[in-house]
Design a protein around this nucleic acid. Sequence first.
DNA 1: TAATAAAGTTAGTGTAGACTAACTATAGCA
DNA 2: TGCTATAGTTAGTCTACACTAACTTTATTA
Lengths: 145, 145
Amino acid sequence: MKRLSPSLEDYLEAAYTLGLKDGFPRACAISRRLKVSKPSVNSAVKALAARGLLEHEKYGYIRLSPAGLRAGAEISGRHLLLKDFFIAVLGMDGAEAERDACRAEHALSSGALRRLGELAVFLKAPPRRRLLRAARAAMSGKKAV
Amino acid sequence: MKRLSPSLEDYLEAAYTLGLKDGFPRACAISRRLKVSKPSVNSAVKALAARGLLEHEKYGYIRLSPAGLRAGAEISGRHLLLKDFFIAVLGMDGAEAERDACRAEHALSSGALRRLGELAVFLKAPPRRRLLRAARAAMSGKKAV
DNA sequence: TAATAAAGTTAGTGTAGACTAACTATAGCA
DNA sequence: TGCTATAGTTAGTCTACACTAACTTTATTA
């Protein structure tokens, strides 16, 4: 499967998160959320359908396929991880964090994201436990991020 | 001044860093560094010249303007900051860090980058000083990142 | 059930940014 | 001084991804 463009990732992510809320994502809801025109949604949906990430009957439902659900969850997860990092670790405000997460979610490798998540967990842990964990990591020879 | 696209930022950054090394950046050096064709460089250079970021006489020199130097230094700084963060804080290897920095440098706000840099400084400081600094920050009422 | 509002589609346009092919200019050297 | 390699340019093409205008379908409701 060829890598999705940032733009298609945005559409798929929107479809996924809207689907979680309302059962089935509507094209016009995606249009409103991403602030793009309906024809833009239409062609993006076609492109996603062509890759087997969703099904789309004319004038009808948009339904994410299993692969689409997986990919959507993955992208949405990246977004949430980054937003949490920006707020909880960097102390950014919600709107700023949201904006940066939207853009950075397409730019970072999975390795960087994983490490970022681990760093957030480490820094958010209460001092005692943090120390304990670092000590244990040191003992086991694992690098304590 | 309208915001540069990621693509134009890449060209300007390349021109800036090549200029640091060789005096004046050559178009074909940019072409090699970014692995794009010469015509791509040519049109990007025109676009940057149109914004007053560099001067470009036909078949001749590319010379960054003061504004171009400033912008180039800023972009290059973002890149270095991110790469350092990825290596020194996240423990990524050089090549991976380089790749991620290339892409993330266009995505993060200046606020996020500043905080990321401060976090790196904080985490890299030796424990004693780190503690001291946190304590002082606490005493002065400033948030200790 | 017919009118209307909302949703979705089609067709056509524009811009950014990449490419190749083919040309022109400049520089280095025999 | 002229040949050749390298650098730079022009013209034309392609893809992605936005848009508007105008149309069709579906849903709502008087």
